[in-house]
Amino acid sequence: MSPPSILNVSGLTKHFPIPHGLLGRQEHIVRAVDDVSFSLAHGQTLALVGESGCGKTTLARMLLRLLEPTSGSVEIEGKDIATMSKAEMRRFRTNVQAVFQDPWASLSPRMRVFDIVAETLVINDNLTKGELTRRVDEALIAVGLRPEQAKYYPHEFSGGQRQRIAIASAIIAKPKLIILDEPVSALDVSIRSQIMNLFKDLQQDVGCSYVVVAHDLGTTRFMADRIAVMYLGKLVEIGPTDQMFDAPQHPYTQALLSAALPLRVDTPHEAIILRGDVPSPVNPPTGCPFHPRCQSVIGDICKTVPPRLKELGSPDHVMSCHIDP
């Protein structure tokens, strides 16, 4: 990767022990995220896609250090976030921000917009009251709200406006990386495009990078430069967005992308319909975790040997499948 990367994830793994039985002895382990590695260049957007239980949200939470990994590392601009000093941690907290899915749950109902938006600066920087007000005003204007609105409480805003407040509070400290966890899926359809355009504008203005967790594939295609597809905690394919959409290689990626319903009626929509449900991550299938639902199983190897990631033409595009590309 030629441009220097903002984010480097290597071998990231998170196991959740599930207490089982009457005495709460740990018998099961959920491999929520299992040996995931990728990197993200400055100013770029990576989308994490996959279905429920694939580990994309757990992964995002580890990037934010809301969860501690079981093993592996997350590096922001070359610094491992697990071993940061206090001062570095403070830099990390201003450099990496997040926008969550539900704008009703992500703003405290007891705080005014001003306090919500200013929080990161209040905690990490020593600013005068005047300077703080100026920064809050700037952030509100950047997300399309008016500075006068800072004095209201969240319940006085609609869902789309609340998400704008959440975005204002995420960008106020001028972060380099913002984790967007399903940032538009709780919003009305006609509001989504406003918010997605806003993310793009902000990225162009300040050059921040995004990691977007999304299940809506249209959102992904619009927002992302690269897409990482996850299944049962494992990375199955990662590559440039256009390549992924136009010529997906992994059978799961193919099925997932074909499940996106296009807005057209003239050409028939042909989809790969997968058999069965997503298996429980408590007891994942042997070999390739996707084999019980896979439409392209090539033999016993799929059931017994876990595939490794291999390059598809360039180091930029890799997948984990036994099929030869």
């Binding site: 359809v189 989504r192 495009s193 249209g218 295609r221 992308l257 807005l263």
Partner: peptide, 18 residues
Amino acid sequence: SVPSVDQKVDRLYAIDGQ
């Protein structure tokens, strides 16, 4: 305004307001 899965666009059509 719905982003297409068929092709990449730079900007989405958006209507203001709620």
